[in-house]
Nucleic acid binder design. Sequence first.
DNA 1: CACACTCACTGTTATAGAACTCATTGAAGA
DNA 2: TCTTCAATGAGTTCTATAACAGTGAGTGTG
Lengths: 252, 252
Amino acid sequence: MTPDAGHEARYRAIAADLAAKIRSGHYAPGEALPPQRELSASYGVTLMTLRQALRELSDERLIVQQPGRGTFVAPPHLAYQLDSLRSLVDDLRKQGHDVRTAVAGRAVRRAPARIAAELRLRPGDSALRLERVREFAGRPAVHQVSWVRRPVADQIRDRDFTAVSLYTALADAGVTVAQASEVVRPGLLDPAAARHLNEPQGSPVLVSTRITYTLDATPVVSDHATILGSMMEIRTERAATGLSLTWGATIP
Amino acid sequence: MTPDAGHEARYRAIAADLAAKIRSGHYAPGEALPPQRELSASYGVTLMTLRQALRELSDERLIVQQPGRGTFVAPPHLAYQLDSLRSLVDDLRKQGHDVRTAVAGRAVRRAPARIAAELRLRPGDSALRLERVREFAGRPAVHQVSWVRRPVADQIRDRDFTAVSLYTALADAGVTVAQASEVVRPGLLDPAAARHLNEPQGSPVLVSTRITYTLDATPVVSDHATILGSMMEIRTERAATGLSLTWGATIP
DNA sequence: CACACTCACTGTTATAGAACTCATTGAAGA
DNA sequence: TCTTCAATGAGTTCTATAACAGTGAGTGTG
């Protein structure tokens, strides 16, 4: 048997087809896929081959397999994984801290040149500017300015961002977040952020710049966060199995 | 066929056996493993089953498979993976920068209390203190002080650390690095490091504290690195497939 | 009614055999 | 001497079949 007729392995084609059906909603999150034997028959392929396709999906965290029960579509915690500032919030909550979000500004206005470049907007295009302050342990720790591309921005501009994360709002608006790239640099607290963070100018901070992309590689959100060095740190764990990256609190 | 006689899957047992042989040096790094057909015969197992075992090893980055050529033991870039400051060097070299290491100090002396605690030494125990400055693009960028536990320290104290990385020296001394944890905080350049880094005091820096562990969870190296914010940044990429973390240069 | 058992259904692991692609090598031909 | 091409040996993908192991609902018994 030839692996295929168009230079792509059979199991990869099947994996791609199933992945498309999952992402398109043909199989809903939490729903069970048809049994392996049934799928293998419908694809005209052996159980072994089908399982190899499922293994691909499992590696991508698209499905969860449970012996004796079935194969289920994984819940869409993609956005959860991607939002480091939300995982920050989660990390801190797990440590017992009370994390709150205050909205300091929200407006649709013309995007500055740097933001326009990041979001690939035409000069003069407008976007939603969202300014938030994250507090925990009763003290402000992160000052964050996010710009959201239109037309997505129009769908989410009226959400209550003290209770709902930006990424949850995006997901509710049907925007699937696929990728994010982030750069973190050390810096000194500037006057504008100092007003919100209640800390002297020139204090050591981490400055995070993050751009988030949809499935078709369109940038949707540009984030600029100023993170107080006295309250936050970056932790990494490296082992043979892989790499983990978390934000941690440095409350005494 | 029962998966095995002792509640462990056959392919897992084979994977564990091969992994042990690789780690023990029975198969040397870079060396080719016997052909799959030969291995499957010697384990008395099908090609499919053997390949499942190899897939495990491949997932763990222990082997590299090349179609038409063979299966090779991966070079021991475990330390490479673990040493973010060495991967920094590699990242920069890939970008065409010339990275150099200068040794500013090397001595066996009594470890300060904080270091002793990190390495789990008894108060008063001595250790190797290694002070290095990393330069690239002709400018000093990182000031790094490493403490190495004895007796490992005695085996590597005479190596030429301008040419050999600390982790290479450790590997040569038979020390297998298994895990590392690192914390990165923003900070201000202190006078001691400022002398080496040729930058004004109070400049924004990243301060990295890393502890490296051997297979038996003994801490062997404690690293404290001061990284100039004007020259270095942290980049992360998040996607469905996983997370990557690299150090990048910010040379204009 | 409560408990244990059976059985059908699920994913999992294994067998054996064959055809495929890719890289290397060495001999034949120009 | 250089080029070409077929043979070889490696990993890769697939077919076909069988048995194992966890789950849970239904069934029977006390």
